[in-house]
Design a binder for these strands. Structure first.
Lengths: 242, 242
DNA sequence: CGCCTAGTTGAGGTAAGTCAATTCACGTGG
DNA sequence: CCACGTGAATTGACTTACCTCAACTAGGCG
């Protein structure tokens, strides 16, 4: 029997994977590695031979500007790829930092390409997963471009909650969240000081409380309305390829 | 001999496509259709059976917020897919508006999935192209999140120039650009008024002039330095799969 | 104990937004 | 042919959301 990893669960939502595909997928996992929080595992500009699949912990991918500012593009949670784009484009256009200590399994570029060639349905599934990730980035862009700080924060916390619920790490009450206010600031394009103020504002409005590493939705419905949160772009309606 | 469309050129940069793959690709093109400027061809929320390949003209993909604001996510130029993600996710999370009158060829979802199954290298090539598009969106996010208005504008005009040069529609002197200041505003997360001011500022600084549908780089090197433009994320180093 | 990191709060500055008025090019119909 | 309407660009005056600087608290750990 093939193991039921977060990745298999995720791809299985897109494509009903058959045994041969599952075993190809399983054969991708090479070395298991761990990284400590705060020390980058991938540097912007680096040429990569390997991607990783996140087994436990949180990471974030970000880009640095020359003047030292940074923009966090996305957070990764268990089951997500780390550096898939870097492998495909043969150079990393971003850095990846573990937010917590993390465990990953390494995937070699050559193995991945070979797997795509052998099992086209797997390639399609990965293309699907990549499309969903891109939809996340797009929604992130919309938030940073057109929402004010409070809406942006509210939307972000809801989206993260949705993603975590998806892998069983949260629900409409809330979730454990190891991010600092600095992480939030760099993700949302705000200053850390303003993040603090906005969090207070949302807390005092009785919508959501982020404190001591835990996000608590105090009034989920009101928060959704306030954030103009439309979960349709996150929905997953089951496998499309039988 | 298989025709040399913009799409073939684009994918060929990633994967050295063989004749069988080229003919599968050619067989994807169904009806040729035209759309007039300003009238959406895809609406947010719509369920799509078909994607399009842009043959001529410019389009943009955007998302609308409930309060009527919009964020343009990306512009599409000849050779780009329109609505590929919508097809893969079976629902459109964004709208697409032709900026000019456009010509497209329709690609049916079923045909596309069949093509992927038959020719895995084609699926890999499309995954590659999608990754490059995602890298663009990521860079866009960084700009909106962490660059001030002038840098953002400068960076945007340079990136667009790079993409157009890529398909032979521009060079380091400049390019024809049908966008209005409203398009720029919605893409960059600014107000149209501020776009106007920023353009004046860049023009008076002698770096770039956008006027009468034409972007002229007055001082390309200075502009690159000002925008902290790093073209590496756009680079294409030739086919990886022989 | 003392240092470091994360969080909190206030005061004041600034980039960008809003509102409003004007110009100009263009198309369209009387 | 000209009056008119419309969309795009332009500019000024004023407002505001968010930033910066700075001070302070609280917990964790050598």
């Amino acid at each position: 029997m093939i193991e039921n990893t977060p990745l298999v669960r995720k791809l299985g939502a897109f494509v009903a994977l058959l045994d041969p595909e599952l075993s190809v997928l399983a054969s991708l996992h090479k070395r298991r590695r761990t990284f400590v929080a705060g020390r980058d595992l991938v540097h912007q500009g680096q040429s990569d031979q390997a991607a990783y699949i996140l087994a436990s912990g949180w990471a974030c991918s970000y880009k640095l500007l020359e003047d030292g500012q940074r923009q966090i593009v996305d957070f990764q949670i268990p089951g997500d790829f780390l550096g898939l784009r870097s492998v495909l484009l043969h150079v990393s256009d971003h850095s990846i930092e573990p937010v917590t200590d993390i465990e990953v399994t390494e995937v070699l570029a050559a193995d991945l390409l070979k797997a795509f060639a052998q099992t086209p349905r797997l390639a399609t599934a990965v293309l699907w997963a990549a499309s969903r990730d891109e939809a996340m980035v797009v929604e992130h862009l919309v938030g940073v471009g057109r929402r004010d700080a409070a809406e942006r924060m509210a939307h972000f916390l809801l989206e993260l909650g949705g993603r975590l619920a998806w892998v069983g790490l949260g629900n409409t009450d809330g979730y454990a969240c190891p991010l600092t206010q600095y992480h939030l600031a760099d993700a949302l394009g705000l200053s850390a000081v303003h993040v603090n103020r906005v969090l207070r504002q949302l807390r005092e409005a009785g919508m959501v409380t982020f404190r001591d590493g835990f996000v608590a939705f105090d009034d989920y419905d009101q928060l959704i309305k306030f954030a103009q949160f439309d979960p349709s772009y996150m929905d997953q309606k089951g496998p499309f390829l039988p």
